[in-house]
Amino acid sequence: MDSFIWMQSHADWMIFFIAALFIGMSKTGIQGVSLISIPLMAMVFGAKPSTGVILPILCFADLVAVLYYRRVAEWKYIIKLIPAALVGFGIALLADKIIPPEEFKRLMGGCLLIVFVFMLWSEWRGKESTMVTKWWYAPLFGILGGFTTMIGNAAGPVLAIYFLSLKLPKYSFVGTNAWFFLVINWLKLPLQAFVWDNISTTTLLLDLYAIPLVIIGAISGIVLIKKLPEKGFRYFTAAMTFISVIMLLI
């Protein structure tokens, strides 16, 4: 896949750099803002090819986030999610044989819409849910997270709802999120490269241009999360999820 053939204008490069900036910000603090990067990248590269372009950027951003939040993580939740997420990988690989590439964008949007409705419902109830203690709760989110991250790097809102439902404070949220995606995204690399053939030398060369913007975004995220209150953190995540769903479904 020659990624540079899509970069036909200054606008394409601008979208690419904005997406990289948002990814960096999201990984270190401003959760949900990277969701805007998914439809932006899909606009330039196409829904399925964009997953191969954006994944190495995510992997680099994960490393930056873990370097900063390396001591802040709730590993008991990560361990519950990882096995189910691998099952989600397998479901996504099967779906790839059935669903045409042009339908991936709507599939991604549909998954996010389901998650967003669940988020609104949870917030509307405004009280502790007994579901979080059920044996199937974490595996359900793990499977959906693995599926959505494989088909479109769109597992952010899935994990956001899971962590928010556990009432994790913002720093525990960000640290646990960073470690989870470090594991998941690096496990996805060989699947994207050798099974879907979405990553190539030219893809990686293109992604090198994104590194400075990822670093700038990561620093911005660290600064901004310190100023964002707990409630603001929750509301911002919900707003970013809604925007991303609309951009994918239209």
Rank of each mutant, 00 (worst) to 15 (best):
M150L: 14
T149K: 02
G109W: 12
K134L: 11
V117H: 03
W135R: 11
V183P: 02
F163M: 15
L112N: 11
I161A: 15
V117N: 03
F141A: 03
P169W: 12
P139Y: 08
F118G: 07
L107R: 02
L189V: 14
P157G: 12
F116A: 10
C111Q: 00
W135H: 08
G142I: 08
N153H: 09
F180Y: 15
G156A: 14
C111H: 00
E103Q: 08
K170N: 13
F173T: 14
V183I: 15
M108A: 06
C111D: 00
L120R: 01
M108E: 06
I161P: 08
V117Y: 04
M150G: 05
G156V: 14
I161D: 08
G110M: 11
Y137S: 00
G142V: 09
T149C: 03
A160K: 07
W186I: 05
T130F: 02
L168F: 15
G126W: 01
T133A: 12
R125A: 00
V183A: 08
G152H: 05
K134Y: 06
L164T: 12
A178W: 10
S122Y: 09
T133S: 10
V115Y: 03
W135F: 10
L182N: 04
F180S: 13
A155W: 06
P139T: 06
F104D: 02
G156E: 10
L189H: 01
E103G: 00
K167F: 14
N185C: 01
W121N: 03
S165L: 13
F180H: 11
P157E: 11
V174R: 06
G142K: 08
G109R: 11
M119P: 01
A160Y: 07
A178C: 10
N177L: 15
L159P: 02
G156I: 12
P169M: 13
M150C: 05
I114V: 14
V115K: 04
L140C: 14
W124D: 00
G110S: 11
E123G: 00
G152F: 06
I184K: 01
M108H: 01
E102L: 03
N177C: 12
A178H: 10
L140W: 11
L113M: 14
F141V: 03
W179F: 13
F118S: 09
L164I: 14
P157W: 11
K105F: 04
F163N: 12
M119C: 02
T148E: 09
M131H: 07
F180C: 09
A154P: 12
